[in-house]
Computed example of a mutant assay.
Amino acid sequence: MDQHHDAVQLLFTDVHMPGNADGFDLARQTNERWPHIAVVVASGRAAPEPGDLPEGATFIGKPFSAEVVRHHVRKTLPDERHPKQLRT
Rank of each mutant, 00 (worst) to 15 (best):
L10M: 05
Q3C: 11
Q29K: 15
E67N: 08
H82R: 05
I60E: 04
E67L: 11
V8Y: 05
H5G: 05
A38I: 00
V8T: 08
F24S: 00
D22R: 12
Q9A: 14
R45T: 14
A7Q: 13
P18N: 09
E49N: 09
D52I: 06
A47T: 12
T13R: 00
L11T: 01
R70F: 10
W34A: 01
H72A: 10
V68A: 15
Q85R: 15
F59M: 03
E80G: 05
Q29G: 14
P50L: 08
V39K: 01
W34M: 00
H71A: 15
D6P: 05
P50M: 11
A21T: 11
L77A: 02
V68M: 10
K75Y: 14
V68L: 13
T30W: 02
E55A: 00
V40K: 02
V69C: 08
Q3Y: 12
Q29M: 15
S65H: 09
Q9C: 14
V40Y: 00
E80R: 10
T13E: 00
K75M: 14
H16E: 13
P83T: 09
T88C: 14
G19F: 04
A57T: 02
I60C: 03
M17F: 01
F64P: 06
F24N: 00
K84G: 13
L53Q: 07
L10N: 05
H16R: 12
H4R: 14
T13G: 06
T76N: 14
T76V: 12
F64K: 05
R87A: 09
L77G: 02
V69Q: 01
F59E: 02
P48S: 02
D52G: 09
F64H: 06
S65F: 07
V39L: 09
A66W: 06
K62R: 10
F24G: 04
H4G: 10
L10K: 04
V69Y: 03
H82A: 05
L86N: 06
D79Q: 10
G23Q: 02
I60G: 01
P18C: 04
L77E: 00
A27E: 02
A21S: 10
N31E: 14
P54Q: 04
A47I: 13
S43Y: 03
E67Y: 10
D52K: 04
D2A: 15
P35F: 02
T13K: 06
T58W: 00
F64Y: 12
A7E: 10
D22V: 11
A7C: 15
V40C: 07
L77K: 04
D14A: 04
H71N: 15
V15M: 06
D22G: 11
P50Y: 07
T88A: 13
P63S: 02
G44K: 00
F64T: 07
V8M: 11
P48R: 05
R45F: 15
P48K: 01
